[in-house]
C-alpha cells in the first residue's frame, strides 16, 4: 500500500475563484434588471456584447500565450465584460462595448500577465479610455422610459446599436443628472430642480438602479465575498465631504443623497472598488484606499471637468495601492507594533 502524501492542510473550503467571480456576477443581475426595466434594452445589449468580446479576447490571448483553457473557466473575463457593459450608456453603438471589453481584457489584464497580475482595474481602464476617446457617445444617456413616448422594442434597440440608423430624437436623450447639475450655471440648486422638469424622474430612476446595486452589494457582504471596509470607506468619505459642503452652501452644492444615489456611487463602491486584484490588501489599507476613492470622486465631480469620476478615482488609487500596502501592514501577533514601509 502506498498512498499519495500531500502536505497539510488536507482540508479545503469548497470555494473557488470561479465561484467568487460567479457570485459577484450574480450580484449584478438585480441592477441589470432594473436598468433594463427603467432605461430600456440598451444595457442588456451592452452586457451581451461586452461579455462575448471579453471571453473571446481572453480565449484568443490564452491561445497565444499557450495557457490551459481552464483559465477561461475562472469567470473573470465574464465579470469584466459584465461590469463594463453595465457602466456604459444604454445608447452606446456596438463598437463601444466591444472595443472597451477587448481593451479591458487584452491591454489592462492579459498584457500584465493575466488574472491577478494587473495593477489597474480592467473595466475602469477600458471605461476611462472610452470616456477620454469618445466623450460624446459615452455621455449620451437616454431618458428613463417613463419619459419616453414610444420606447424602443428590443429589435429597434438592437438596430440602433448596430446601425445607428434610428436616430434617437432629442426627447429620448439627455445629459446625466450630475452633468446637468454641474452645468446649471448661475442657478441655485433649488432653481435647478424647478427648472429641469425631468430631473425628478431621472433622480427616481437612478435611485432605483443604485438601490439594486446596493442589494447586490449586501448579498456579497453576506456571502463573505467582499469585506465591508472598501465600500463603507468609499461611501462614507464621499458622504462626509458632500455633507460638509452641502452644509456650508446648500444652494450651490449637491446634497449627500444626490451624490450617493445619482451616478456610479454605489455601483463603484461595491463592485469596482472591491476588485481584489487592484485594491489594497489589509483591512486598514482597504479603508485608506476606499477613502481615497471617495475623496477623489467628490473632488472631480464638484470641481473637475467630468460629471462623474469613478473610473479616474479608482485608477488613481490603483496607483497608490503598493504604497498603501507598505504602510498599512497589520501588527503581527507577538510584535509590539506594525512594521511600516519596506527596508
Amino acid at each position: 500500500m502506498s498512498l499519495l502524501a500531500p502536505s497539510s492542510p488536507h482540508a479545503h473550503r469548497p470555494l473557488s475563484t470561479s465561484h467568487v467571480m460567479a457570485q459577484v456576477s450574480l450580484a449584478t443581475l438585480p441592477a441589470l434588471g432594473v436598468l433594463t426595466w427603467l432605461f430600456g434594452w440598451g444595457s442588456l445589449i451592452n452586457v451581451m456584447l461586452a461579455v462575448t468580446t471579453a471571453i473571446f479576447a481572453e480565449a484568443l490571448i490564452l491561445k497565444l500565450r499557450k495557457r490551459p483553457w481552464r483559465i477561461l473557466m475562472d469567470n473573470s473575463a465574464l465579470l469584466t465584460g459584465l461590469l463594463l457593459g453595465l457602466s456604459i450608456t444604454p445608447l452606446a453603438p456596438w463598437w463601444l462595448p466591444v472595443l472597451g471589453a477587448a481593451v479591458a481584457v487584452v491591454v489592462a489584464k492579459q498584457v500584465y500577465g493575466g488574472l491577478g497580475q494587473n495593477p489597474f482595474n480592467p473595466a475602469m481602464v477600458a471605461y476611462a479610455l472610452l470616456l477620454v476617446s469618445f466623450p460624446l457617445p459615452m455621455s449620451l444617456w437616454p431618458q428613463p422610459l417613463s419619459l419616453q413616448a414610444e420606447p424602443w422594442t428590443f429589435w429597434e434597440h438592437l438596430t440602433h446599436t448596430f446601425t445607428g440608423s434610428l436616430h434617437a430624437i432629442d426627447g429620448y436623450t439627455g445629459a446625466t443628472l450630475l452633468d446637468a447639475f454641474k452645468h446649471k450655471g448661475a442657478l441655485t440648486a433649488e432653481e435647478f430642480w424647478l427648472q429641469t422638469p425631468v430631473a425628478q424622474a431621472v433622480l427616481n430612476a437612478t435611485t432605483g438602479v443604485s438601490l439594486a446595486y446596493l442589494l447586490g452589494g449586501v448579498y456579497l457582504l453576506w456571502r463573505g465575498i467582499i469585506s465591508w471596509h472598501t465600500p463603507v470607506a468609499v461611501l462614507a468619505s464621499l458622504l462626509i465631504l458632500a455633507a460638509f459642503f452641502y452644509g456650508a452652501d446648500p444652494s450651490q452644492y449637491a446634497s449627500p443623497s444626490m451624490h450617493l444615489l445619482v451616478g456610479a456611487g454605489i455601483f463603484s463602491a461595491f463592485f469596482i472598488a472591491t476588485d481584489p486584484v487592484t485594491s489594497a490588501t489589509s483591512h486598514k489599507g482597504k479603508l485608506v484606499y476606499g477613502a481615497g476613492i471617495g475623496i477623489l470622486v467628490y473632488v472631480i465631480r464638484t470641481w473637475g471637468n467630468y460629471p462623474d469620476a469613478f473610473a479616474f478615482a479608482v485608477l488613481l488609487m490603483n496607483f497608490a495601492v503598493p504604497f498603501i500596502d507598505y504602510y498599512t501592514r497589520p501588527r503581527t501577533y507577538g510584535h509590539a507594533r506594525a512594521q511600516r514601509g519596506i527596508k
Binding site: 473557488s16 475563484t17 467568487v20 483559465i71 475562472d74 473573470s76 493575466g114 488574472l115 491577478g116 497580475q117 469585506s227 481584489p276 486584484v277 485594491s279 490588501t281 489589509s282 483591512h283 482597504k286 497589520p330
Partner: peptide, 10 residues
C-alpha cells in the same frame, strides 16, 4: 489558480 489578492487568507 493565480492569486487574485482577495485577502481571504489575511
Amino acid at each position: 489558480m493565480p492569486c487574485i489578492r482577495c485577502g481571504m487568507c489575511e
